[in-house]
Design a binder for these strands. Structure first.
Lengths: 248, 248
DNA sequence: CGAATAGTGTCTTTAAGACATTATTTC
DNA sequence: GAAATAATGTCTTAAAGACACTATTCG
């Protein structure tokens, strides 16, 4: 413990961002094509090193969020640390991963530096066919799992929506993130039963056809009571691949 | 992004351990008295810097667990990153905090280096009177909150128990970590209803007085179905100080 | 026997899941 | 009117909370 000669090692600290959004009813994650070695040309998560010794880590994450995705004021939370020796050929690089949730944006990216960035469907990514730089595949998997779990117990789903949204919008978030189909009627009842989850604003949204839907905004509550149970009394394994009843 | 002159900064990486255990029906955390500056003489979490450039971060946590607490084979999970600039006067130090859960040990510590270590009651710590080094007070708070949440949905509670335990033992874990009193009969039913949580071993434990209790060991399941709900349909604020019905 | 702890059962309320029905829009 | 989507209601089952009761040990 006490030591005279020994010096602790210094390492490089990076941030990586798992930015999730909903586009055309599918859960998508933002990837950028790397312009430098290592993994030049491969797709990777947006991110980078701390700018200097004094930059706060979350501040660095927000800086990258702005620089690489043109995003501000989105939900951002720490996901974990990825620091396995050898994960980066340049040396010992420890990366702090963040999970960001953004409302659906019209165009692929607004305000990106230049290098091509794209949204990629989570289904395609998790199927294993797409190769990513570093350990980013695992980081994305952890990010999605985090989002899935937090959707159950917190109001995170509203972070996928704009300022106001309909209950159908909210249902699409749950269906896309969980990868299941939900009964609209039971969903409706549950969402409205979770106190403080959503609060109605006066206005309506007129769809192309069908009855106009009431608009809501996010409520003040972070923890849901009762929770939006993904499945009670059924083991989670049976839930993931439960796509039997999906038509169309 | 692309850059020729700029060099990313190098920082010091540390690990800190929130080691929780149950001692005499109270939740306690391990603290060590610092033998070096800064905060010389103050209590702090066990931990330290990475040994060298090639040490894995979780391996460093396990090394400190062994060196400073004499513990091995305990539950260990990443808690988060604490890297605010200025948290350590020696320079930019980023600490990866880990949460460890240990079964109750007979003596304060077995196999500690030398510096005085002690178990401190979480109640005393959270009441705010005890000052700790660095931002360790916040780290402990986050660790306890993590344990509270995970007790609901996972089999983490068994990590507080030895190889075998009675249902009363398990109940004491929940009561200590959550800071509430539970009805033994409902607890019994819920624990046994959570499939794969605990499995009976043949034998009994004879207490000083009263009927002998069946012994169980931890089951294979990590996620509980149904969960051990801390409170359904009641906001969590109202739950913390709900000690009205407690008689001796 | 009484004291103490272990274990089971029962009743009420809440919430989940399945599914029928009504309401309001466009064409 | 039909088609489409929004919103509400009803029934059954599972699980939570409160609490009475039985079981097995010690002295």
């Amino acid at each position: 413990m006490e030591d005279d000669e020994w010096e602790p090692p210094k390492i490089l600290l990076a941030v990586d961002l798992v930015i999730l959004t909903l586009r055309e009813t599918r859960l998508q994650v933002l990837l950028v094509k790397r312009g430098i070695e290592p993994y030049l040309g491969a797709y990777a998560l947006p991110g980078g090193f701390l700018f200097d010794e004094h930059e706060d880590i979350e501040a660095a994450a927000r800086r990258e969020l702005s620089e690489e995705a043109g995003l501000a004021d989105v939900h951002l939370e720490e996901l974990g640390v990825y620091g396995e020796p050898g994960r980066d050929p340049r040396g010992r690089v420890v990366s702090v991963a963040y999970l960001a949730i953004a409302p659906s944006l019209p165009e692929p990216i607004a305000g990106t530096d230049a290098a091509d960035a794209c949204w990629m469907s989570v289904e395609d990514l998790l199927s294993g066919r797409v190769g990513l730089a570093f350990d980013h595949h695992r980081i994305i998997g952890d990010g999605i799992e985090r989002a899935r779990v937090k959707l159950e117990h917190t109001a995170l789903a509203t972070a996928f929506c704009g300022e106001t949204f309909t209950i159908s919008d909210l249902q699409q978030v749950y269906e896309a993130v969980w990868g299941v189909r939900l009964d609209p009627r039971n969903f409706y009842r549950k969402v409205k039963g979770a106190r403080g989850f959503i609060i109605p604003v006066g206005s309506l949204q007129r769809p192309e056809n069908g009855r106009p839907a009431r608009l809501f905004k996010a409520g003040p509550v972070r923890v849901l009571h009762p929770p939006m149970a993904r499945s009670t009394s059924v083991p989670p394994e049976a839930q993931v691949t439960r796509e039997g009843g999906v038509r169309s």
